[in-house]
């Protein structure tokens, strides 16, 4: 065990080519999927949190259901849609980074929506009431609401990124964990552990845990700032 950890640290320090490729694919997938999920989820979350309309509760229930969707189910749906018998087979996206990003967006967006909705639901009434009392217009009120959400948006993004980088079920199904092409950190850990190559697995595990630690520290600091 100790030897494996020492070897893993040596592998990280040597900037191994395969390790760098896995990190590159992971970064591409995680960054792109989390940014896209943020761009879709933040406006929807703000809208759901700030508005009251018929059917809102049903939308919230649907979103909460999607938040709990098992990644393998998401992977299965994408696999069926894009495989050789699926309606979108002509797009030839299966086993590419693009479809991994798409699956991740579907998994992460509800989390972004839920996080933003919950926060906006708490602050919007006070923001609106105060703005109305000052005779401010709708546009100014909207920007004041967005301004109140800045830290929450950053915190939500980090949450989305952390979820994306740690996901394994959906990406292994639609990406196939192909070496030098679609292998990301989580799928590579599984793959190399199955082969008995613990060194690379541990090296990736160390990197993954370090990233997770950094993200959590940043989230904690932001949450401290958010608390009044």
């Amino acid at each position: 065990m100790k030897t494996s950890i020492m070897k893993a640290i040596a592998l990280i320090l040597s900037a191994d080519a395969e390790l760098l490729d896995i990190l590159g694919v992971t970064a591409e997938m995680s960054l792109q999927s989390s940014v896209i999920a943020l761009l879709i989820g933040v406006p929807i979350g703000i809208w759901l949190g700030a508005s009251r309309f018929y059917g809102r509760s049903a939308l919230l229930v649907a979103n909460r259901t999607l938040m709990g969707m098992p990644p393998v189910v998401c992977g299965l749906i994408f696999y069926m849609l894009f495989s050789g018998v699926g309606p979108f087979r002509h797009l030839k996206l299966l086993f590419t980074v693009k479809i991994m990003i798409m699956a991740q967006v579907v998994l992460i967006t509800p989390i972004v929506v839920g996080s933003m909705e919950g926060y906006v639901d708490r602050v919007a009434p006070a923001v609106r009431e105060t703005a109305k009392g000052l005779g401010l217009g709708r546009v100014k009120t909207f920007f004041l609401l967005v301004n109140e959400c800045v830290y929450q948006i950053i915190s939500t993004y980090l949450l989305a990124f952390a979820r994306s980088i740690a996901e394994v079920g959906a990406v292994s199904m639609v990406g196939g964990a192909i070496a030098w092409k679609t292998n990301v950190m989580t799928t590579a850990i599984m793959q190399y552990t199955n082969r008995g190559n613990f060194t690379l697995g541990i090296a990736l595990g160390i990197i993954l845990l370090t990233i997770s630690l950094i993200v959590n520290i940043v989230i904690s600091l932001l949450q401290r700032r958010l608390s009044r």
């Binding site: 923001v127 009431e129 105060t130 004041l144 301004n147 109140e148 800045v150």
Partner: peptide, 8 residues
């Protein structure tokens, strides 16, 4: 309002 809100 009774509960004063300060914008960030």
């Amino acid at each position: 309002p009774q509960k004063n809100f300060a914008y960030r």
